[in-house]
Design a binder for these strands. Structure first.
Lengths: 221, 221
DNA sequence: GTGAAACTTACGGGAAACCGTAGCAGGGCT
DNA sequence: AGCCCTGCTACGGTTTCCCGTAAGTTTCAC
């Protein structure tokens, strides 16, 4: 079992249960912090002291409070940590279920495991740690399923830019100016109309209001 | 301290840390389930056995899986539980932060406390239980803040009907027919326009799209 | 270089939404 | 009753949006 594990998780209760799970697995003193900046500091100090951590377990999203932080989320933390200690194993433990986000964690951040906060997260944490001990990657099984049922329209950057502008209150006819300023192509008014029509058609909507509500529901804005 | 507490929470790790918190507070054997239907069964059995629970701690949203459930969420569970045991104290522990949702829990379901899953949720759980022991209501402080900055328009039934119709895709000009059929007055097109304008003016919006997004955020639709 | 295809943009007619005004109905008051 | 006040509705002009068509641009193959 890993001897030195660091937990970065802002929710107090989640942090506690992570500690409990790890002690059950045989890590005598799992260490834990509630802020990303603290996590990085501890990792640096551990490297300096010649006793680096074996594993970092971190959440993805940390809530802001009065303590201003340089590092705002788990992805940034992992990036910074790997600069200090490239061989550090990393396990992400978060409620995020969007495949695009998780895929990029594996591909770009080279994380070793991802467990979604969900029904059987305790079991899966144990399996994940076992896998990582054997230098394998791990992804909790509830996500492998979720990946398939995704038959909805996948929104491009342009789509999201258009919808965001609508939600900001920009009149449709002014959106081309915004897109030009931000070097998003295409930027013609007709293209915007066409894009909106496409999205509404795929999803079976007739009005922008429906589209906005849908996007709010699935969380892309 | 409460002697008999039932936890309904589908996330394994959250469930574990709730148990731990409660034992620290002096409840010897907090009982726990992972499904709402089980929770109701246990409550019924406890009443029959003459040893009813003192407190129910429940999440709001439960994820569906292969076990088909009759009761899908915490709100329904509370309603069903109070029919069996009206004096049951209830504490909701969830990640939900929309004020409209939480307000309705207090007003309509008469819950005794709400703690949001967030940074200091462990502390707040303890405070909540202490308050409920004294027959007081409790709301975790991170939400009190959110509530004050809320100088918003309070939405009437008419407002919500109009917005709902927009989200359904009904063209504005057809909404009068819908309102007449449902005996909602006023129902004139001008009144609808006036009402939409008022809402947007109060909230500083210029377009329906903004209004829809706002209503989704605060959870009234 | 030429042409075809795909994509982007421009334009114009018609529908919907927006906005101010005026007319109408009901309630309360003298 | 007569009057005022309030709120609902109806109407017309302007703006925005919707949608089909046509013209321009880029890409790629031959």
């Amino acid at each position: 079992m890993f001897k030195r594990i660091l937990i970065a998780e802002d929710h107090e209760t989640q942090n506690i249960s992570l500690q409990k799970t790890l002690t059950e697995l045989g890590t005598e003193k799992p260490e834990y912090v509630f802020y990303c900046d603290d996590a990085l500091t501890w990792i640096k100090n551990a490297v300096k002291a010649g006793q680096p951590y074996d594993l970092l377990i971190t959440d993805l999203y940390f809530e802001e409070d009065h303590n201003r932080q340089k590092i705002m989320g788990g992805a940034e933390l992992i990036k910074a940590a790997k600069e200090v200690q490239p061989n550090l194993k990393t396990l992400v433990f978060s409620g995020e279920s969007k495949t695009a986000v998780i895929d990029s964690l594996f591909k770009e951040m080279h994380i070793d495991g991802y467990v979604r906060k969900a029904r059987h997260d305790g079991q899966y944490l144990k399996l994940a740690i076992a896998a990582i001990l054997n230098h394998k990657k791990y992804l909790s099984p509830d996500l492998k399923l979720a990946r398939k049922e995704n038959n909805s329209h996948d929104f491009s950057d342009l789509d999201i830019a258009i919808i965001s502008q609508l939600v900001e209150g920009t009149p449709q006819k002014n959106i081309p100016y915004y897109l030009q300023e931000n070097n998003i192509k295409p930027s013609g008014l007709s293209s915007i109309e066409k894009r909106l029509n496409l999205m509404k058609e795929v999803l079976g909507f007739s009005k922008n209001e429906q589209l906005i509500a849908y996007c709010k529901d699935i969380g892309i804005i």
